[in-house]
Amino acid sequence: MKKHLLKIILPAFAIVMAAGLAFATEESNLPYVGYIATESGYAEIQTDCPNVGQNQCYEGLDPVFNDIGLTDPKLRN
């Protein structure tokens, strides 16, 4: 009886764990759109800056902005 119960419970537990962990992604892993200055104007980039905090976000040495006009700096913690 113990083996029979274990054969049913163990796969069910594995399915529940897999479904739960599938939704356990962090929001900070999602890419955000940002803009950097280039010689020809601006370039749209994917960044990991969530625009919260007080420090300017950088992509390499280039500061990242929220708008195409490059006036609203993107922030990070």
Rank of each mutant, 00 (worst) to 15 (best):
22 A>R: 00
17 M>V: 13
17 M>R: 11
33 V>D: 12
54 Q>N: 12
48 D>T: 11
14 A>M: 10
35 Y>W: 01
16 V>C: 05
37 A>N: 11
19 A>F: 06
10 L>G: 01
48 D>N: 15
11 P>H: 10
18 A>C: 13
49 C>R: 02
10 L>N: 06
37 A>P: 02
50 P>W: 07
44 E>H: 00
6 L>E: 12
46 Q>E: 12
15 I>P: 05
8 I>N: 03
36 I>D: 01
30 L>S: 13
47 T>Y: 05
6 L>P: 04
23 F>I: 03
23 F>W: 00
31 P>C: 09
13 F>G: 04
8 I>S: 09
49 C>W: 03
6 L>S: 14
26 E>M: 14
41 G>E: 14
21 L>V: 03
28 S>G: 08
24 A>V: 01
53 G>V: 09
8 I>H: 07
29 N>D: 09
38 T>R: 15
36 I>A: 00
39 E>V: 15
27 E>I: 11
43 A>N: 04
12 A>T: 13
42 Y>E: 02
40 S>E: 11
6 L>D: 11
14 A>W: 01
35 Y>G: 00
20 G>I: 08
44 E>G: 07
40 S>I: 09
26 E>G: 10
43 A>D: 09
18 A>Y: 06
38 T>F: 13
14 A>S: 14
25 T>F: 04
11 P>I: 10
14 A>F: 10
53 G>C: 13
47 T>F: 03
42 Y>R: 01
12 A>H: 04
16 V>H: 06
45 I>K: 06
41 G>D: 13
16 V>T: 12
39 E>R: 15
11 P>S: 11
33 V>Y: 01
34 G>M: 02
17 M>F: 09
9 I>V: 14
40 S>L: 08
28 S>N: 10
46 Q>H: 06
26 E>K: 03
26 E>Q: 11
35 Y>L: 02
17 M>K: 05
28 S>Q: 12
12 A>D: 08
30 L>N: 13
16 V>S: 13
24 A>R: 02
41 G>C: 04
39 E>K: 15
22 A>Q: 01
36 I>C: 00
16 V>A: 13
14 A>H: 00
47 T>H: 01
7 K>G: 04
25 T>I: 06
52 V>P: 03
40 S>Y: 04
7 K>N: 12
20 G>E: 06
45 I>V: 15
44 E>I: 13
39 E>D: 14
33 V>G: 00
8 I>A: 11
42 Y>K: 07
16 V>D: 05
33 V>F: 00
7 K>A: 11
7 K>R: 12
11 P>A: 07
41 G>Y: 10
28 S>L: 10
7 K>M: 14
18 A>D: 08
21 L>G: 02
43 A>G: 04
35 Y>K: 06
21 L>M: 01
21 L>C: 02
52 V>Q: 15
16 V>I: 15
45 I>F: 10
42 Y>N: 10
16 V>L: 14
31 P>D: 11
50 P>A: 11
19 A>R: 06
38 T>E: 07
29 N>I: 12
20 G>R: 00
45 I>C: 05
33 V>W: 07
21 L>Q: 03
25 T>V: 01
48 D>G: 15
38 T>D: 08
10 L>Y: 04
17 M>W: 04
28 S>W: 07
46 Q>M: 10
6 L>H: 11
28 S>R: 06
54 Q>F: 12
14 A>D: 02
28 S>I: 15
51 N>F: 14
54 Q>P: 01
34 G>T: 06
42 Y>T: 06
20 G>W: 02
27 E>L: 14
